[in-house]
Design a protein around this nucleic acid. Structure first.
Length: 534
DNA sequence: GTCATTGCTAGCTTCTAATG
DNA sequence: CATTAGAAGCTAGCAATGAC
C-alpha cells in the first residue's frame, strides 16, 4: 500500500502526490475490525459463504497481515477447505525501507538468507492438524518460498488464484484495477479494499454497470483507519482522528485514517434480499449462488449498504445486532399473511423534503412509499423497514455530490394526497408530467395504501419500469453525463443517515431514461417507544 | 426549563496539477 | 484529456454551557 507522506500543511495540487510517490512506503495494515465487519456482512447473509472453499489472500503475510490471521483463526468456524496466503518479496517492494525476517521465518528449517529477500512466500493452512494440538489454527500453517517474488500477476500466484474460490486482500491501490481484472478474468469471488474513485474510472465503472462488482457493506461511509509502523510520518490531524475512531497509537503501531477507502466485492450480502423483502420472493433454497446471482442481476443492485455490526464474541457466537436472516423470513411471513404491520400510532416519521433549491435541469424526486414492521429482532426491539422510492436524475457534472445534494429539487407535488390505485396486476399512480411512478408523501394510516406502495416498489423493480434485465443488454442506455449513477447511489445514504440500510439503483431500460432508487431505512421500536437506530 | 451560543467531530466533499 | 492508494477543510448534527 502506498500512501502520501503526510504533511502538516495542506499541500497544493498534485505536488503532494508526487512527493508521496517519491517518499512512499508500503506498510499500511488493514485493521482486524475492518476485515471482521465486512466478512461478517457476507456471513450474515450466507453463513456458508466460505464453507468448503479455498480462500486466497494475495500479498498477505500472516506474520503481519490481519487478513491471514483472521481467516486462520476462523478457519474451522467458517468451514474453510484451504487457506492460502502469499507475501511479496522485500526486494521487489521498492517502497519498503528496511526488512528483517521475523524469528518465525529465520528459525524455520527452510529459511534461506537469499530467498528471504528476493522470493515471495506461500503459507497454506488445510484441515490437517499438523502440530497435533487438536485445533486447526495459525500454528498449523505451513510455508515455503515461492519461485518468484509473489507478484499476483505471476504464473504461480495466478495458479493459486485459479485454485481459489474467494480472494480477499488490500492490494496496492495503484494496481487495484488490474487486480480486479485479474480476479474477474478467472471468475472468482473477491473482496478488496480500494479507493472510492474506482467507480469513476473507465475500467471499473462498466463493471458496476454490469453488476460484476459493487461496494462492500462496511467502511464506505466513514474514514477507514489503518495501522502503520511506529514512526511513520502522519499528519497529527489524521492521527487524532484515528484515535477518536478508537485507534490511538499503541506500542506496536501508529494509526492514520483515509477518507477515500472502501470495500469492493462481488460477494453477496443483504442488499438484494433485504430490500423490500426480496428474499421472500425467492424459494426457501434461495441460498444457492445461482439463484442469488440471478436475483441480483434482475434487480441491478449496486452501491452502499450499511450493516449493523454483528459483534463476534470470539467463541463462535455472534452476539449483538439483529439476525438479519430472521428479519427477512419473518417479514416474508407477515407479508404473505397480508399483514404489513404498519406501526399505527407510532412515529410516522414524515419525510421532510428539505433544501428546496431551484436549479434548472436538476431533479431528485423522492417520496416515502412504504413502511412495515419486519420482525422482532432482539429481546426488546422491533425493527421497521421504511421503504422509499425516488427518481434520481442528477444531471450535471460528476463528482460534485455536494452540489447534487444541495440542488435537490422536490417535484411531484401534484401527487400530494393522491393515493396509489390498485389496478390489475399492480398499482397505478399516474402523473401527467412525471409518468406512472412518482410518489409523494404517503400516509400509512390506510393499510391498503401501505400494501399498495410496496407493490408499487416491487413493480418498479420487477416489471416494466426502470429495470435493466441484465444479460439481454449489457450496456443500458445512458445519458451523456457520466457519473449520475454514482451520485444517485451516494445520495440516499446522506439523505437519511439514521438507520439507513440499503438501497437499490434501478437503471434505465430501453425507452426509459430515468433512474430510480429504492431505499430502505431501518427504524427500531422499543417497548412503548419508537426510535430510529442510532 | 427554554433558548442561544459555542465547541467538537463524523462523515464526507472539494481542491489540485503532474503525468501519461 | 483522464487519472491520481491524497490531503485536509467543511458542515450538519450534537452536546455542553451560559443567559435569562
Amino acid at each position: 500500500m502506498t500512501v502520501t507522506t503526510p504533511t502538516t500543511k495542506r499541500n497544493s495540487g498534485n505536488s503532494s502526490l508526487v512527493a508521496a510517490k517519491n517518499a512512499a512506503f508500503d506498510e499500511y495494515y488493514t485493521l482486524w475490525t475492518t476485515i471482521e465487519n465486512e466478512v461478517n456482512a457476507y456471513r450474515d447473509y450466507d453463513p456458508d459463504v466460505f464453507r468448503d472453499k479455498v480462500v486466497l489472500l494475495p500479498c498477505d503475510d500472516p506474520e503481519w497481515s490481519n487478513f491471514a490471521k483472521f481467516f486462520a483463526l476462523n478457519f474451522s468456524r467458517f468451514g474453510l477447505k484451504k487457506l492460502i496466503s502469499t507475501s511479496y518479496a522485500p526486494d521487489s517492494n521498492l517502497d519498503l525501507v528496511s526488512y528483517q525476517p521475523t524469528l518465525f521465518e529465520a528459525e524455520s528449517p527452510q529459511f534461506d538468507e537469499s530467498k528471504t529477500r528476493i522470493n515471495g512466500k506461500k503459507f497454506v493452512l488445510t484441515r490437517e492438524d499438523t502440530n497435533g494440538d487438536g485445533v486447526i489454527n495459525i500454528d498449523d500453517l505451513r510455508w515455503e518460498y515461492l519461485d518468484g517474488d509473489g507478484d499476483f500477476r505471476s504464473a504461480e500466484v495466478s495458479a493459486l488464484r485459479d485454485e481459489a474460490d474467494v480472494i480477499l486482500t488490500n492490494p496496492p491501490f495503484s494496481l487495484g484495477r488490474e487486480f480486479i481484472r485479474w480476479v474477474l478474468d478467472a471468475g472468482k469471488k473477491f473482496a478488496i479494499i480500494g479507493p472510492n474513485s474506482f467507480p469513476t474510472t473507465k475500467e471499473i465503472f462498466p463493471l458496476f454497470q454490469s453488476n460484476q462488482l459493487w461496494f462492500g457493506s462496511t467502511g464506505n461511509t466513514s474514514d477507514m483507519v489503518f495501522a502503520v509502523p511506529k514512526g511513520t510520518p502522519i499528519a497529527p490531524a489524521d492521527a487524532d482522528k484515528a484515535a477518536r475512531l478508537g485507534h490511538p497509537a499503541d506500542e506496536n503501531y501508529d494509526y492514520t485514517r483515509m477518507g477515500n477507502s472502501c470495500w469492493y466485492t462481488n460477494l453477496e450480502d443483504r442488499k438484494a434480499e433485504y430490500l423490500l423483502g426480496t428474499g421472500e420472493q425467492l424459494p426457501r433454497d434461495r441460498c444457492s449462488t445461482a439463484d442469488r446471482e440471478a436475483q441480483r442481476r434482475r434487480v441491478g443492485v449496486i452501491g452502499f449498504g450499511r450493516h449493523q455490526q454483528c459483534v463476534d464474541g470470539g467463541d463462535g457466537r455472534e452476539v449483538g445486532g439483529p439476525q438479519r436472516r430472521d428479519v427477512v423470513e419473518e417479514s416474508g411471513d407477515r407479508e404473505r399473511s397480508g399483514d404489513t404491520e404498519l406501526t399505527a400510532g407510532q412515529d410516522r416519521r414524515q419525510e421532510t423534503y428539505r433544501d428546496r433549491v431551484d436549479v434548472e435541469q436538476r431533479q431528485d424526486q423522492q417520496g416515502v412509499v412504504g413502511r412495515r414492521q419486519v420482525g422482532v429482532q432482539s429481546d426488546r426491539a422491533a425493527h421497521v423497514l421504511e421503504v422509499r422510492v425516488r427518481q434520481a436524475d442528477t444531471l450535471g457534472s460528476a463528482g460534485r455530490a455536494g452540489g447534487v445534494d444541495q440542488q435537490r429539487v422536490v417535484v411531484g407535488s401534484g401527487l400530494r394526497g393522491r393515493l396509489p390505485r390498485r389496478v390489475a396486476g399492480g398499482v397505478e399512480i399516474i402523473d401527467e408530467q412525471l409518468g406512472p411512478i412518482d410518489v409523494e408523501l404517503i400516509s400509512f394510516d390506510d393499510d391498503e395504501c401501505g400494501v399498495a406502495v410496496i407493490e408499487l416498489a416491487l413493480r418498479l423493480r420487477d416489471e416494466e419500469l426502470g429495470i435493466d434485465r441484465c444479460g439481454d443488454r449489457p450496456e443500458p442506455p445512458r445519458r451523456h453525463h457520466g457519473d449520475e449513477e454514482f451520485d444517485a447511489v451516494r445520495q440516499p445514504d446522506r439523505d437519511d443517515a439514521e438507520g439507513f440500510e440499503e438501497f437499490e439503483l434501478l437503471r434505465p431500460v430501453e425507452g426509459e431514461d430515468r433512474y430510480f432508487v429504492i431505499q430502505a431505512t431501518i427504524l427500531m421500536s422499543g417497548p412503548g417507544s419508537f426510535r430510529s437506530l442510532t
